[in-house]
Amino acid sequence: MTKQGRILGIGPTDNTSDQRTPRQPLRLIPEGVRDSFVPVVPATYRTGPHEWDLTRTAPGRPRAQGTAIEVTGTLRSESGRPVSHALIEIWNANTHGRYRHVEDHSGLQLDENFYGMGRVLTDAAGRYRFWTISPGAYLARPDIGRWRPKHIHLSVSGGSARLITQMYFPDEPNNASDPMAILMGDAFARNIGTPRDVNGADVDEAYDFDIVVGGRNATYFE
């Protein structure tokens, strides 16, 4: 039997996915050159001391509108090894579903107290923590009434570990119709944050979201 690479799925109701998803099966990386496909991100990145708190644009400034949340978790490889001192880049829409991005032309309301982007590093045990505003869902396809569910974007760079993913929220009505969630199937459950007690933190809600980086990008050292 000839080994064949994956055929990528196209997200239903996602025009961009239809335009940009390769149709050919992916080629399997030849034995012996696998490492050459694994970038090692130099640890030259930096983060500001206040970037972990997206609920304010700077210390002492007013809280942004909406529900303040804390997100914590541990970054690990598939073998369970913590990925320490990795960069996590975070971006999410404000409570109205608007990004403070020059290419977001939705016209939804901005919040002068919400920037919506931040960067944190994992600690020696691979743990991370940030605060943000619970993002609003937004109408991604007005023509067919399809919404994007509430989600937070996370980009992980740590040595050979590299992952871009999203954290979703439990029991959201739009989760089931999201094109990317549909492609994930049952595995979508892994991308949903787990609510927990705020444990006295100055936020309204708290979630655990452990991240496991799999595939060749986690395996350089293993």
Binding site: E78, H101, M117, H153, N191, I211, V213, G215
Partner: peptide, 26 residues
């Protein structure tokens, strides 16, 4: 190709970066 260990943790799914990757992170 990847040979997964039997006790490997299930990986977090990759997901799209979407259209709004922050230009400010350049």
């Amino acid at each position: 190709m990847t040979t997964r260990q039997p006790n490997a943790l299930p990986a977090t799914n990759e997901d799209t970066s979407g259209p709004y990757f922050p230009i400010a992170f350049a």
